[in-house]
């Protein structure tokens, strides 16, 4: 699974992108975020406040209950500020 980080999430994690293999019980966005955060260190800090984290799965906005699978592109980013 490809994980992309943008804006201050990218800065806090220290990575723009990584490939991860979550355990089989990670099936939706909520459990993926919990697992990413459980890795501790910068992940725990960057994902401390999930109200500030938006998620897209395969470039569409996703909710906590939306499914994720091994070949998905999952992006984590703060609320957008374009326009």
């Amino acid at each position: 699974m490809r994980i992309l980080y943008f804006a201050w999430l990218r800065e806090r994690v220290g990575l723009a992108e990584e490939t991860v293999t979550p355990p089989s019980e990670v099936r939706d966005v909520a459990s993926l975020l919990a697992w990413l955060r459980s890795r501790g260190g910068v992940y725990e800090t960057a994902l401390a406040d999930l109200s500030m984290v938006r998620v897209a799965v395969n470039q569409d906005y996703a909710r906590p209950e939306d499914p994720v699978a091994a070949n998905d592109e999952v992006a984590l980013f703060p609320p957008v500020t374009g326009g």
Binding site: W8, Y61, F77, V80, G82, G83
Partner: peptide
């Protein structure tokens, strides 16, 4: 379009 792109288009200002 302007209202929606401000809240949906994935841009971040630094």
């Amino acid at each position: 379009l302007v209202d929606w792109l401000k809240t949906k288009a994935p841009f971040w200002k630094l």
